[in-house]
Simulated scan of single mutants.
Amino acid sequence: MASARSTFRSTGVAIRLTLLSTVVLGIAYPLAVWGVGQAAFHDQANGSMVTDSSGKVVGSSLIGQSFDGSSAARWFQSRPSAAGEKGYDANASSGSNLGPNNPDLVKAIRERQQAIAKADGVPASQVPADAVTASGSGLDPDISPEYALQQVSRVASARGMSESAVRTLVDEHTEARQLGFLGEPVVNVLELNLALAKAS
């Protein structure tokens, strides 16, 4: 009898602890984190969405996207993507998973190098590495300042703008190393293209 009472009491304690843990860790804590995120970091908590001049959401500053099609020459190009069938798929984030000596990867890099060199009017040997290789996630929204500056002449010509005006936009959208020493300077392609559209 005493043993049954003790078991019943232990079961009751376990149920109460389970309910308390569910309320605190499954409801209260997530709501608190969500609330702080919305209050203090609203843009970041909602995906760092970027809008155009009309207020329409055109992408996220954290996820790369393609600027191809018939008007591709008018836009700064992102680095290649192996995420998903068409690239830049946030639901299929990944690299190519091909080793540096893989014949398919070597061939793809050479083809990209030749195409970019022709489009931007530079020798193939001057095409930066980030112009021809995908990032590990396939979603990198940034390119190197070197790759951005290489594209200035093409973009300026396609838009009828002066190269100095386009170069100024690149300079304005070049982000320095984090804390002055972490990583490398980068240019966010989506934000640069939005500034370009606004200026031209």
Rank of each mutant, 00 (worst) to 15 (best):
residue 75 W to H: 13
residue 64 G to F: 03
residue 28 A to D: 03
residue 17 L to P: 02
residue 114 Q to C: 00
residue 113 Q to S: 10
residue 15 I to A: 11
residue 135 S to H: 08
residue 161 M to F: 01
residue 189 V to D: 07
residue 123 P to K: 13
residue 90 A to T: 07
residue 139 L to D: 02
residue 40 A to H: 02
residue 55 G to R: 13
residue 160 G to F: 03
residue 124 A to E: 10
residue 29 Y to E: 04
residue 72 A to S: 15
residue 19 L to K: 08
residue 64 G to D: 01
residue 73 A to S: 14
residue 108 A to M: 13
residue 114 Q to S: 14
residue 105 L to C: 05
residue 102 N to G: 05
residue 63 I to V: 15
residue 3 S to D: 12
residue 33 V to F: 02
residue 131 A to S: 15
residue 158 A to V: 12
residue 59 G to I: 03
residue 97 N to Q: 15
residue 50 V to N: 07
residue 187 V to L: 10
residue 69 G to N: 10
residue 105 L to S: 07
residue 77 Q to I: 05
residue 43 D to I: 06
residue 166 V to R: 06
residue 109 I to R: 13
residue 145 P to V: 05
residue 20 L to H: 01
residue 139 L to H: 05
residue 105 L to T: 01
residue 110 R to N: 15
residue 29 Y to A: 07
residue 113 Q to I: 01
residue 32 A to D: 01
residue 197 A to Y: 00
residue 83 A to P: 03
residue 194 L to P: 04
residue 135 S to M: 06
residue 18 T to V: 10
residue 99 G to H: 11
residue 189 V to R: 09
residue 17 L to D: 09
residue 156 A to P: 02
residue 133 T to F: 00
residue 109 I to V: 15
residue 134 A to R: 04
residue 14 A to K: 04
residue 34 W to F: 07
residue 73 A to T: 09
residue 142 D to M: 09
residue 116 I to K: 06
residue 143 I to H: 04
residue 177 R to T: 08
residue 160 G to W: 06
residue 131 A to R: 11
residue 30 P to S: 08
residue 127 V to F: 05
residue 21 S to P: 00
residue 149 L to C: 00
residue 36 V to T: 11
residue 35 G to A: 13
residue 41 F to V: 02
residue 126 Q to P: 00
residue 67 F to L: 07
residue 115 A to F: 04
residue 118 K to L: 12
residue 38 Q to K: 14
residue 165 A to H: 14
residue 176 A to W: 03
residue 16 R to T: 05
residue 38 Q to P: 06
residue 20 L to G: 09
residue 65 Q to E: 07
residue 142 D to F: 02
residue 13 V to N: 09
residue 139 L to E: 05
residue 86 K to G: 01
residue 143 I to C: 01
residue 128 P to R: 12
residue 172 E to C: 05
residue 179 L to N: 15
residue 85 E to S: 14
residue 5 R to N: 09
residue 70 S to Y: 04
residue 24 V to E: 06
residue 6 S to I: 12
residue 5 R to M: 10
residue 154 R to I: 07
residue 157 S to K: 15
residue 47 G to D: 11
residue 185 P to N: 07
residue 116 I to T: 06
residue 5 R to E: 11
residue 109 I to F: 01
residue 106 V to H: 04
residue 30 P to K: 12
residue 73 A to E: 14
residue 24 V to T: 12
residue 184 E to R: 13
residue 4 A to C: 03
residue 180 G to W: 08
residue 41 F to R: 07
residue 172 E to G: 04
residue 45 A to W: 08
residue 92 A to I: 03
residue 189 V to T: 10
residue 129 A to S: 13
residue 31 L to Y: 09
residue 191 E to I: 12
residue 183 G to A: 04
residue 96 S to L: 02
residue 90 A to G: 01
residue 100 P to A: 03
residue 65 Q to N: 09
